[in-house]
Design a protein around this nucleic acid. Structure first.
Lengths: 363, 363
DNA sequence: TCGATAATTGGAAGCGCTTCCAATTTATGC
DNA sequence: GCATAAATTGGAAGCGCTTCCAATTATCGA
C-alpha cells in the first residue's frame, strides 16, 4: 500500500479542513505542546506518549503545516539564488536549472522561499545589483554560483550585510565567509587525466571556460597532476579559453585541431563545449574515439544526445542545490550564520563512447 | 537606483526584525485592516489614505509575509506536479525541468508549496500511484503533464477526489475536468508544414513520439493540413514512432532514410529526436539543410548545441508552468475549482540553419 | 435641514504552530 | 521515608496576517 494514510478526507480539494495539531493532541489525549515536541524530535517525552502521538498522527493522516510552523517559530527564511548570465544568453543553462530544481524542491519541503535572480556577469555593477536585490527582497540567505562565488569583494560585501551565504563551486576565499559547496575539483581533473593517459593518450588539447571560475582552474591543475604522474609535462597540453557555450567549444576545438594535428584528446570544461569540440572533430574527418578522444564535464543531458556520447564527470547538481538550502534553513532558524567552511560532494567519472568503446566497433 | 528601499535594516540577516503590517499601520496612522485592504487592492479606501499607506510601505521597505498571509487567509495551497518517466530514464528532461522551474518560481512568490513527483508511465498502477500521492500529501491542486494529461480515467478519478487540476498539453477530454493549458498544436504543426513546403520540400519523414501524447498527434494533423494546402497528400509522408529520446530519433532517422532515400525533410516530435535524426543524416553522408531539412519541437537548449542548429517550435514552458500555478492558487483560494476549459499559450516557429541558410554557405 | 443609505475605517478573533514558563510527576540521594 | 533535583507535561501568548462585524463618517434625496 503506497497510501500510508489510514484516514481520508472525502474531498481533499478546496475547502476541506485538514487535521491540525489540535486534532492530533485531542486524539492522543495530550496537550498540543507535547505533539509539537514529538513532531520536532525534542526530548522529554515518554516513549509511551510518543508512540501514542505518532499513532494519532498516522490515524488522522496529519501533516504539519510548514507555513504555520515557520510563522510560529519566527523563522521566515528567504533565500536568493544568484545565477550568472553571459550577455543575454543563459550559458550552462542545465547547470543553473539543476541547481535551482534541487534548491526549490528542498525549499518546498521546508517552507523556505527561494527567489532566483539572473545577473549579467559582465556588468561592472553586478555586485551592487546583487546586494540591492538581497536588500530589496529582504533575503536572509543567498546561494552564489560561479563566477560570483569566487569574487572576494562581493563575498565580503554580502558578509558585511549579515546575509548567510553558500558558495557553489567557489574559490579558495569562499570558505572564509560561507559554506563552500562543491566537488573535489582537483581530483575530478585528475581522474580525467588518469583516464586518458591510461588509454594511451599523450597530446592534449584543453578547452577552458571563462576566467574567474576558480573551480574550473583547479580541475585543470588536477589534470596536469595526472599527466605528471604519467611522466608528461605541461607541454603535452595546449589550451584554449572558451565561454562554456557550444559555439566556443566548436571554435576552440577547430583551433586546437588546426594548430597541432598531433592532439589526440580534447578535454573540455563543460559538456556544451565538448559537444562543440565533437563537431569540430567530425568536421575534420576524425573519428571518435579512435582518432581523438573527447571529454566533457557536468554530465548534463547533452552528454547523451551527441555522438558518440560523452565521457564526463557527473556532478550531483540537484543534490548540491538541495544541500545549500537545507544548510541555510538550518543555520538561519538556529539564529546563527557563523558556520563556514568547505563541504565536498561526491562526483564520479562517467565513461562513455567518446573516449573508450569496449568492443571496438567497426565504423 | 535599483534598490527601491528607502530604509534598510543594518543586518538583514538572521534575527533582525523586518517591518510588519503593524509598523506600516502605525506610520500611516491607520488600522492594520486598512493597510491590508490597500495591500490587497480592495475597495473602500480613500485615495488619500491609500497614498499614505503606500508611502509608509515604501519608507519602511515593507514586504508582506506570504506565510502569514496564507495562514490567515486559510488558503494553504499545495500543488503536486506530476512528471512521467519512461522506465528509469528522464526523457524530455528539459521539458519537465522548464515546467517545474516556471511552476516553482511562481509558487515561491505566492507562498504555494509545490511537490514534484516522477511517475513511471509504463507502470500499470501509475494512476493509483498518482492518486495515492495526492492523497498522502493532501494536495488540493495538481498539474498533469503528458501522457497523464491525456488519460481520461485518471482525470475522472482526480476529479472525483475534488482536487483542482491543470493539464499541460492534454487531450480533448482534459478541458472537461481541468484547465487545459497548451499551445495551439494544430497550428504549430501547420507552421512547420508550411515552412517546409514553402522551401520546396515534397517528401517527408515524420518521427512521432510515444503513443498517448495527444497534443503530438494534433501537431501531426496540422502538419498534414499544411501539406494538403500545398497540394500534397498523406502519401507524401512516411512515419515512424520513437519515444522522445535521442537514440530513438537516431534509429527512426536511419530507418526513414534507408526506407526511401527520396525523403528530403525529417520532421520530429521533439528536439532530442531531431538531434538523433540529424546524426542519422550525417552518418548517411547527407548535408543539412541542402540534402535534407530537419525540424524539432520545443526549442530546448539541445536545438542550439547540434549542428546545424535546429529549426523548431518554441513553447514557453516556464510560462506555462507559472500560469498553471497561478491559476490553481487563484482558484483554490477563491474556494472554487469549477472553472474548466482550454487556455492557449502563444508559440512561435524558430527558424535556424537545419532548414534554411540565408546566404547559402559553401560547404 | 434631516434621516437614511452608502462608503470608510477600526477592533478583535483566530489561522496552525512554536515556545516560554509554570505545574506536575518521577527519580535520586541520604 | 522524605526533601530535592530532574524529567515530563500543559497553559497561554503570540508569529504576521485576513476577515467578520460593528462603529464612524460622508453622501444624498425630499
Amino acid at each position: 500500500m503506497r497510501s500510508g494514510a489510514v484516514a481520508h478526507w472525502g474531498l481533499i480539494g478546496a475547502n476541506v479542513t485538514k487535521p491540525t495539531i489540535d486534532d492530533v493532541a485531542a486524539l492522543a489525549g495530550v496537550a498540543r505542546t507535547t505533539v509539537s515536541r514529538v513532531l520536532n524530535n525534542q526530548p522529554n517525552v515518554r516513549p509511551l506518549v510518543r508512540e501514542r502521538v505518532l499513532g494519532a498522527v498516522e490515524t488522522l493522516g496529519y501533516r504539519v503545516n510548514v507555513q504555520a510552523r515557520n510563522l510560529a517559530g519566527r523563522k521566515v527564511v528567504r533565500i536568493a539564488l544568484i545565477h550568472a548570465s553571459d550577455f543575454d544568453t543563459e550559458p550552462n543553462s542545465y547547470f543553473s536549472s539543476a541547481l535551482e530544481l534541487g534548491a526549490t524542491r528542498a525549499g518546498a519541503g521546508l517552507g523556505v522561499q527561494i527567489i532566483t535572480h539572473v545577473i549579467n556577469q559582465n556588468d561592472p555593477a553586478a555586485s551592487d545589483e546583487i546586494v540591492a536585490r538581497l536588500r530589496d527582497d529582504q533575503c536572509n540567505g543567498v546561494i552564489l554560483t560561479p563566477p560570483f562565488s569566487d569574487y572576494p569583494p562581493l563575498l565580503r560585501e554580502i558578509d558585511a550585510l549579515g546575509v548567510a551565504m553558500v558558495c557553489i563551486a567557489g574559490g579558495a576565499e569562499a570558505e572564509n565567509f560561507a559554506l563552500s559547496l562543491g566537488i573535489d575539483d582537483f581530483r575530478a581533473g585528475e581522474e580525467i587525466g588518469a583516464h586518458l593517459t591510461g588509454l594511451g593518450h599523450r597530446h592534449f588539447g584543453f578547452i577552458k571556460g571563462l576566467q574567474g571560475h576558480a573551480s574550473a582552474e583547479t580541475r585543470y591543475d588536477g589534470f596536469l597532476a595526472a599527466l605528471a604522474k604519467a611522466g608528461l609535462g605541461p607541454d603535452a597540453v595546449s589550451t584554449r579559453r572558451g565561454n562554456f557555450t557550444f559555439r566556443s567549444g566548436l571554435e576552440c576545438g577547430q583551433a586546437l585541431l588546426a594548430d597541432r594535428l598531433r592532439v589526440d584528446a580534447l578535454v573540455c570544461a563543460n559538456d556544451d563545449m565538448a559537444a562543440g569540440a565533437l563537431l569540430a572533430a567530425h568536421k575534420s574527418g576524425l573519428s571518435i574515439p579512435q582518432d581523438i578522444a573527447i571529454t566533457g564535464f557536468d554530465d548534463t543531458p547533452v552528454s547523451e544526445i551527441v555522438w558518440p556520447p560523452l565521457t564526463t564527470i557527473h556532478q550531483p547538481l540537484k543534490r548540491m542545490g538541495a544541500r545549500a538550502v537545507e544548510y541555510l534553513a538550518d543555520r538561519l532558524s538556529a539564529g546563527m550564520r557563523d558556520q563556514t567552511g568547505r563541504e565536498i560532494i561526491e562526483h564520479h567519472l562517467v565513461v562513455r563512447d567518446s573516449t573508450f568503446v569496449p568492443t571496438p566497433a567497426a565504423k
